[in-house]
Amino acid sequence: MARSYLEFERPIAEMSAKIDELSRMGSDADVDIAEEVERLSKKRDQLIEKTYGQATRGQMAQLSRHPDRPNFLDYVPLIFDDFKELHGDRAFADDAAIVGGIARFGSRSVMIVGHQKGRDTREKIRRNFGMARPEGYRKALRLFHLAERFDMPVMTFIDTAGAWPGIDAEERGQSEAIARNLMELAVLKVPVICTVIGEGGSGGALAIGVGDRLYMQQLSTYSVISPEGCAAILWRDRAFADKAAESLKPTVTDLQELGLIDGVIPEPKEGAHRNLEEAASMMSEVLDNALNEVLAIPVEKLLEQREQRLRQLGEFAEV
């Protein structure tokens, strides 16, 4: 598969190309070349570490929506078995921007729901780039209730620029659909574990993001508004997106400091976008622990804790 590189990933791309070229040349076990390849590989690893480790918040925002970043459906076969996708909101349509269904996670049946941005252009258009309409959120809610009925834990996977800002979405109650999910998820009588796997964009993300645990993958971001949107409003110019990102503080480190997430799901050093299998296995491990943790808590207690968790959100002073 052709790989895409972001502007600031260029040096990594160049070094990778050099390594590939040398490797091809050295197929007859030339010792010098093998050594050189090893030396360069090490150098590349350091470069990767430096590039991602020192990325600005603006660059982190770009990484979280990297064209090669795995989608929800890329992870599903690697983490779950026997996935049965369930379609439609039973009222208007099946919104392909949100995918959901029952799957087996280890020994347990779980309800999984996630945004799906789409891989190629055709799929992206079909899925509206993961920007859901009201029927998408209503399908999700239907599946949450189905999970509740059968005592199935819910696992959600967030990856969206936001809810679709379109005429049709407004006509069918985009606000109502999102609001309803927030309220219902807060009292859903099964464990809910939410994970941001890419771009956590605003209300469209939150609509499947209220639960008992919130995890984020290392290179994902979560923000009240996209850096571009924020720049357009506060700077009156989208070109200030990098500055907006610095202020919005959307990275896992920032949000850990704010105490808004329960944990970070590590990614392979080259990022989930270069090593899907390892990223999936790392995610699976964290989610397995999380699920065991929440399932050990009686549901009434879990709901009390969820209520408390939501109640205490926010930072203010009392004079």
Binding site: V224, D254, E315
Partner: peptide, 22 residues
């Protein structure tokens, strides 16, 4: 809408207030 100057904390007010409606 949400007060973006409070970063993700403002988004979380949506969850907080909606939960309290219960």
């Amino acid at each position: 809408g949400a007060r973006m100057q409070e970063s993700l904390l403002s988004l979380m007010q949506m969850a907080k207030t909606s939960s309290a409606a219960n």
